[in-house]
Design a protein around this nucleic acid. Structure first.
Length: 222
DNA sequence: CCCTGATTCGC
DNA sequence: GCGAATCAGG
C-alpha cells in the first residue's frame, strides 16, 4: 500500500484530530501503526503527548551483546564542553542586528531572542529587555473536541449498532463524517437503500455500467 | 500483558 | 521514502 495524496490527507486529518496511530492505521488499512507514525514524522506532524518523552537522554541499545548485526556507530558527541563552535564573524556587523535568516542561533551576539509562547506563537526579545515581557506560555492541552452542531444530530461511530445502517457518509476524519443511521436491513449492516449500493446482482458483462465511486477508499482488506 | 509514540536503520 | 524492530512510559 502506498501513500497516496488521499491517504496522506486522511492521515494528517486524523493525526491532527488526535486519533492514535493505531486508529489511523486501522482506518486507512494496509498499513501498520508504525508506518503511520513513521509517515507522520516524515510529514512533520510531530510532537504529540508521548509516553516516552522526558528530556533526559536515555542510554538506548544498552543491551549486553545479543549478536548485533552491525557494529553500532559511536554515539554522536552530544555536547563537547571544551570545543567551542567555529565562529563566523567576518560578516557580522554590530548594527546589523538581523541575523542571516538561516541562523537565528546566535542570540548572544544579535541580542534578539525568539521564544516560543505556544503553538505557532513567538515573541521577540531585544537586548534591553529584561525577563519582564516574557508572558508565561499559556498551558494548552488538547481536549477531545465536543461534537460540533454539524455532527451533533448525526449518527456517529458511537451510535452504531447492528440495527442501524453503517454506511459511511463522507470520509473519516472530516468534520461532518457520520453514518447513514437509517434502520438497517435485517441481517445486513446497511439500510435497504445502501444494501442496493453495496450488493449488486451480477449482470452480463455487456450490461455492466462502470461502478460508482465507493464512498471511501475501498473495501476493507484485512 | 495491553496500549501509546519515538527512534533507528536496513531496505 | 518506507516501515519493522525496538525502545520506553502509562
Amino acid at each position: 500500500m502506498s501513500w497516496t495524496d488521499e491517504r496522506i490527507e486522511r492521515l494528517k486529518a486524523m493525526w491532527t484530530k488526535g486519533a492514535t496511530a493505531s486508529q489511523i492505521a486501522d482506518e486507512l488499512g494496509g498499513v501498520s501503526r508504525n508506518a503511520v507514525i513513521g509517515k507522520a514524522h516524515r510529514l512533520g506532524l510531530e510532537s504529540r503527548p508521548s509516553p516516552v518523552k522526558p528530556g533526559e537522554e536515555k542510554e538506548k541499545k544498552a543491551k549486553a551483546a545479543p549478536a548485533p548485526k552491525v557494529a553500532k556507530p559511536a554515539p554522536a558527541p552530544k555536547a563537547a564542553p571544551a570545543a567551542p563552535e567555529p565562529r563566523e564573524t567576518s560578516t557580522e556587523s554590530p548594527m546589523g542586528g538581523l541575523a542571516p535568516a538561516a541562523a537565528p542561533s546566535k542570540p548572544a551576539e544579535s541580542g534578539i531572542q525568539y521564544r516560543s509562547v505556544g503553538p505557532g506563537g513567538f515573541i521577540r526579545q531585544g537586548p534591553g529587555d529584561t525577563q519582564a515581557p516574557i508572558p508565561p506560555a499559556p498551558p494548552r492541552r488538547l481536549v477531545p473536541a465536543k461534537p460540533s452542531a454539524d455532527v451533533a444530530d448525526k449518527t456517529s461511530l458511537l451510535d452504531l449498532n447492528d440495527r442501524i445502517c453503517r454506511w459511511p457518509m463522507g470520509h473519516p476524519g472530516e468534520p461532518d463524517f457520520h453514518f447513514c443511521g437509517q434502520a438497517a436491513n435485517p441481517g445486513y449492516p446497511y439500510c435497504v437503500e445502501h444494501c442496493g449500493v453495496a450488493y449488486q446482482a451480477q449482470l452480463p458483462r455487456r450490461d455492466r455500467r462502470p461502478p460508482p465511486p465507493l464512498p471511501y477508499g475501498g473495501p476493507r482488506v484485512r
